[in-house]
Design a protein around this nucleic acid. Structure first.
Lengths: 87, 87, 87, 87
DNA sequence: CTGCCATTTTACCGGC
DNA sequence: GCCGGTAAAATGGCAG
């Protein structure tokens, strides 16, 4: 009996479903990890061209924060509009 | 003059290069964020089917650790080989 | 009035309690720093006796990983037990 | 044959020396880890008494920085003295 | 002095 | 909605 089939013997069909969820998650995490490596590469390239990566990181995080604020502001505006029947 | 072109007036050509690095990083981070959301979704689906996400997370982290250990072992072997002139 | 007593004048009794927490933390960090120096020394000694510290560090980190894995496995078992009402 | 003696069969007496270095390091790291846990505990206690641990951490790091500066200043003074024959 | 690794800080997620 | 614990980002320290 193969390993794959073995799994489903333990908890019935549920074990197989679990295994598939786990595998999907692991695949997604692999991709996420790859992207993290890509980002690291970009910083390395920038560094090799004389840019200060610490400052770059600050810029990126600042812009991320600004985006957040903008979104929150918009959501707040939507809320106000809805409250005033301007939806 | 457009805003985009404005940037490159500050520090010469370097500013434009910097802008491109930042944008590449931000695009990659967007993708990473999307993957994180996907992973979260998978956990949600699993939960809605009655699986214990806490256990699932432990399983995932345990398997990740096993991978790491395997990698470290290989790296250690490589170091041994290099140290013994078997490169 | 002494400096030590001055502190407690600022925010009432809380300031004194805070001061004591901070001092305890600083003492503990001192000890931690000393241990880090000790570890560094051991590596230095080993190196002076011809050992490859890079390999040594890999060994140490590998064993640390193994410990972690063992702990995670136990935690996973505990979770299983709890989930099955075997707590 | 015991495990301990086995080790020394691989690379002669060196293997035993290596083993002892590794063990010393691991013991020291254990202690370091324990101290880290102690520090975490102190922060927890402080938190449970209503203190803001984030601010406390800032205080601790600021004081650490001040200590560093003071030491560096003293070292600089010593250097000047030595240069002026005031050692 | 540069890259790498450990530590530390920050953010996130789930549970209560 | 907070709080505790877990993963990611950022910083600092060390060896080469």
């Amino acid at each position: 009996m193969s390993d794959e089939q073995n799994n489903s013997q333990i908890g019935g069909i549920a074990a197989e479903a679990l295994r598939q969820f786990i595998e999907r998650i692991e695949r997604l995490e692999e991709e996420k990890k790859a992207l993290a490596a890509d980002i690291k590469d970009v910083y390395s390239q920038a560094k090799s061209q004389g840019f200060d990566t610490k400052i770059m990181r600050k810029i990126v995080s600042l812009r991320r924060l600004e985006d957040q604020e903008r979104e929150e502001t918009e959501q707040l505006l939507d809320l106000y509009k809805a409250a005033l029947g301007m939806a």
